[in-house]
């Protein structure tokens, strides 16, 4: 019995396919993928819009007006002050532009330090094992059970006077390494046993070559995801501390703005133009980071990928 002509061919094309290699094919493939992964698209849009706001915004607005007495107090939005002023006479639009920058910078600096230190620690624990692993794992576990906010509140309260937003980032970085360390460790534990690592050994690769040429490239997706989570956590912590009044008193970060809003009872004064912008920007920032991470997760982890 052979295949008779009445049977349809095994595979039929019903839409244009990405021609591997060609630019058009690549774009087509990327476009199709993005349509299946709207989280990635929306996350990127939100974050890019915010970055554009704070980088392009300072071309049009004088960010030095983000200080007290830059204008009259508690003015509603006008052509001169598009978002009005606060009771101390800051130009709120300038505060938002500068504050977004400062807050994002705090997050990125703390996240970066956290990810670098954390992955180094996680790496040592996972790759070398033994006592180093036991001690590191124990320390990370203990540090992870105690709420970060407690440590941070105590530390920043001790150092409160003269704190800058960069100092804030360093304080937060003290704890930002815990999760990356744990995550990198567990990934290394898996990859250390991978078939391709054993193959590399059989191919004469030494320890360092295996670490940097075999394991590290495969760790990248996890590091990127860890980094985004660390940035989000650092921003969350910094804004939280600042909203408690434990932040840099002389810098117009978003968290300090929230603090002043509460200190000046903005709700009772009805200063809506002061309250809504920082809350909205922070919501955009947190949602953007969350969606970006969820989108990248789906990209990196095929098991979570929806069936096509």
């Amino acid at each position: 019995m052979t295949e008779s002509t009445s049977f349809p061919p095994r595979v039929e094309r019903i839409a244009e396919e990405a021609e591997p290699g060609s630019l058009r094919g690549t774009l087509l493939g990327i476009g199709r993928y993005l349509r299946r992964n709207p989280q990635l698209v929306f996350g990127l849009i939100l974050l890019l819009a915010l970055i554009a706001f704070t980088t392009l915004g300072r071309l049009f607005v004088d960010v030095t007006e983000a200080r007290p007495l830059a204008g009259p107090a508690s003015q509603p939005p006008s052509s001169e002050f598009p978002l009005g002023t606060d009771p101390q006479g800051r130009n709120i639009l300038a505060v938002m532009i500068e504050g977004s920058y400062l807050t994002i910078r705090t997050g990125v600096v703390a996240g970066l330090i956290g990810i670098v230190f954390g992955s180094a620690v996680g790496f040592v624990a996972g790759y070398y094992g033994g006592w180093a692993d036991r001690i590191i794992t124990w320390v990370v576990d203990v540090l992870l059970t105690v709420p970060a906010i407690l440590f941070l509140v105590i530390i920043s309260a001790m150092l409160q006077t003269g704190l800058t937003s960069l100092g804030m980032a360093l304080i937060i970085a003290l704890l930002a390494w815990r999760r990356p360390a744990r995550q990198v460790r567990s990934q290394i534990l898996v990859m250390r046993e991978a078939g391709y690592v054993e193959m590399a050994k059989l191919s004469g690769s030494g320890g360092l070559s295996i670490i940097f040429r075999e394991i590290a490239p495969n760790l990248m997706p996890y590091l990127i995801s860890s980094f985004i989570v660390a940035v989000a956590a650092a921003i969350l912590a910094s804004v939280g501390l600042e909203a408690m009044g434990l932040g840099p008193q002389n810098e117009p970060t978003l968290g300090m703005t929230i603090y002043w809003i509460m200190q000046f009872s903005a709700f009772l004064l009805g200063l809506w133009w002061w309250i809504l912008p920082p809350v909205l920007i922070l919501i955009v920032l947190f949602v953007g980071l969350y969606l970006l991470n969820a989108g990248l997760d789906e990209l990196a982890n095929p098991r979570l990928r929806r069936r096509t």
Binding site: Q39, L236, G240, F267, G270, I275, V279, V287, L291
Partner: peptide, 22 residues
Amino acid sequence: LMVFSAIPFYLIGLVLIYFLAA
């Protein structure tokens, strides 16, 4: 739900205070 889960409690609190209380 995904969007809500990403927002810190107190930011939602501020929005609620503004609209429902103030």
